[in-house]
Simulated assay, not measured.
Amino acid sequence: MIATLLQSFDCAQSNDAPYKHWFLEHCLPEDVLDAVLALPFEAPPLEGVSGKRELHNATRRYFDAENMSRFGVCQAFNDAFQSSTVTDRIERRFATNLDGSYLRVELAQDTNGFWLEPHTDLGVKLFTMLLYISKDPAHQDLGTDIYDAGKKHVARSPFHANGALVFVPSDITYHGFEPRKINGVRKSVIINYVTSDWRAREQLAFPDQPIKH
Rank of each mutant, 00 (worst) to 15 (best):
M1G: 06
I2S: 04
I2G: 01
I2V: 12
T4M: 05
T4Y: 07
L5M: 15
A12Y: 04
Q13I: 14
Y19R: 01
Y19K: 05
K20I: 09
H21T: 03
W22Q: 01
L28V: 06
L28G: 05
P29L: 12
P29A: 14
V32A: 10
V32L: 09
V32E: 15
L33E: 02
L33R: 05
A38D: 13
A38F: 07
E42Y: 08
A43G: 14
P45N: 09
E47D: 12
V49G: 06
S50E: 13
S50H: 12
E54V: 14
E54F: 15
H56D: 14
N57K: 13
A58S: 06
A58T: 13
R60A: 07
Y62G: 00
D64K: 02
A65I: 00
A65G: 09
N67S: 12
S69K: 14
R70S: 13
G72A: 15
V73P: 03
V73C: 08
F77T: 01
Q82D: 05
S84R: 10
T85A: 11
I90H: 01
R92C: 13
R93A: 08
F94K: 04
L98P: 01
L98C: 03
D99S: 09
D99F: 11
G100F: 05
V105D: 00
L107P: 00
Q109E: 10
Q109T: 10
N112K: 12
G113I: 07
G113A: 11
F114A: 12
F114S: 11
W115K: 08
E117I: 15
E117C: 11
T120G: 07
D121S: 05
L122K: 10
G123C: 09
K125E: 08
L126D: 06
L130N: 07
L130M: 11
L130K: 06
L131Y: 04
Y132G: 00
S134M: 06
S134C: 09
K135S: 09
K135A: 08
D136S: 15
P137K: 06
P137Y: 12
A138G: 15
D141C: 06
D141R: 06
L142D: 03
L142H: 03
G143W: 08
T144G: 00
A155K: 14
R156P: 06
R156W: 01
F159E: 11
F159C: 07
H160D: 10
N162F: 10
L165T: 04
V166C: 04
F167P: 01
V168H: 04
V168A: 03
P169F: 08
D171N: 13
D171P: 02
D171T: 14
D171S: 12
I172F: 12
I172A: 11
H175F: 10
H175Y: 07
G176P: 02
F177A: 07
R180S: 07
I182F: 03
N183A: 15
N183T: 15
G184E: 07
K187S: 11
S188C: 08
V189R: 03
V189T: 05
I190A: 13
N192M: 06
N192T: 14
N192Y: 07
N192E: 15
V194C: 03
T195Q: 09
S196E: 10
D197S: 05
D197N: 09
R199P: 00
R199L: 09
R199D: 06
R201G: 02
L204F: 01
L204Y: 00
A205S: 15
F206V: 00
P207K: 09
P207L: 08
P210H: 03
I211H: 00
K212Q: 10
K212T: 11
H213Q: 12
